[in-house]
Simulated assay, not measured.
Amino acid sequence: MVDVCEWSSADTARLLRIPGVDDDKYSRGVVALRTGSNAYPGAAVLGVEAAWRAGAGYVRYVGEGRAADAVIARRPETVAAHDIGRTRVDAWVIGSGTDAAERTREEAVALRDILAGSVPVVVDAGALDLVPNAAAPLVLTPHAGEFARLREFIGSPTNGTRDRVGDLSETAHALGCTVLLKGSTTLIAAPDSSVFSVSSAPGWLATAGAGDVLAGALGALLAAGPEASTAEVAAAAAWLHGHAATLASGAVAGSSGHPIVALDVAAALPAAIEDLLS
């Protein structure tokens, strides 16, 4: 039986780093994203937007084509270049809006280089198949279908057990990384098998692109707080993401709220942070 700890607003607040007078754009955290594709450029836009809105001091986008054009059109302050050169990176976000079946050899080599590094990597969607044998500290962000495929990697399919907590804890331990399983209640398991639950989100958050926003926000929090455990940072990002959705949808003080889109959630991240710290 795995104990589950409910993550709270107070837990999240203690992990948010407020910049001081001596901070600069680098010390606030540098996030690099290798996300999106010509087929799904919006995923890149949503992740980059969320990284900025969640407090990153410097955001790099490593991509080309429609995705890079869309990112710069939406967020011109982003540094977009295929090669990051000597720029320091404090956290990576990879996989959102990509398809492993369409991956080129060049892209596979670049992603494996990132996963072989030492900085934290948020791994989403089309990069999850590259997780086995990665060396970097990882936070995986699968939905239910992707999680079932992760279970196959460790030779233990779910087989309809419906033991969501037990399966998640086992998977994180076997893969040696943090796993954030998205859902109406989001669960986060650390490699030591400890599990946090986050239930701060309204039902309106079940909308296309919300996971891309979560990945970008998580990248920003990882970049800003390298001393914290990846599982705790993942739980804080999930809580903040849910609270931003609450504010964006107006689902406060007993109100049922209204529909939102993913970009609304990203836009509400600054207000969610202000609300949490006030």
Rank of each mutant, 00 (worst) to 15 (best):
D3S: 05
D3V: 14
V4I: 00
S8C: 03
A10I: 00
D11I: 09
A13F: 10
L15V: 01
I18A: 00
I18Q: 15
G20N: 13
G20S: 02
Y26C: 10
R28W: 09
G29N: 08
V30L: 10
R34G: 15
T35K: 00
S37P: 09
N38Y: 04
Y40S: 14
G42W: 00
A43Y: 00
A43D: 01
E49C: 06
E49R: 15
R53C: 10
G55S: 13
A56R: 06
V59D: 11
V62A: 13
R66N: 10
A67C: 11
I72Q: 09
R74K: 15
E77S: 10
V79F: 11
D83K: 08
T87N: 06
V89K: 00
V89E: 12
W92E: 04
G97D: 04
G97A: 03
R105E: 15
A108M: 07
A110F: 01
L111M: 10
R112G: 08
R112S: 15
G117S: 07
S118M: 01
V122P: 11
D124N: 07
A127N: 05
A127H: 04
A127R: 03
L128N: 02
V131Y: 05
A136I: 14
P137V: 14
P137E: 13
L138R: 09
L138P: 14
L140R: 02
P142T: 12
G145K: 10
G145R: 14
F147L: 06
F147E: 05
F147M: 03
R149M: 02
R149V: 00
R151C: 04
E152R: 03
G160C: 05
D163E: 14
L168W: 04
A174N: 03
K182Y: 01
A189V: 02
A190K: 05
D192K: 09
S194D: 15
V195H: 12
S200I: 04
S200L: 04
A201K: 00
P202E: 03
P202I: 08
L205N: 03
L205S: 07
T207G: 11
A208S: 08
G209L: 04
L214D: 01
A217S: 12
L222Q: 03
A223S: 12
A223G: 13
E227L: 07
S229C: 08
A234P: 01
A234V: 02
A236C: 01
A236Y: 01
W239R: 04
L240Q: 05
H243K: 11
A244L: 10
A244E: 01
A245R: 01
T246E: 14
T246H: 00
L247C: 10
A253V: 08
G254R: 02
S256V: 14
S256E: 13
H258T: 05
P259W: 06
P259Y: 07
D264N: 14
D264I: 09
L269M: 10
I273D: 08
D275S: 14
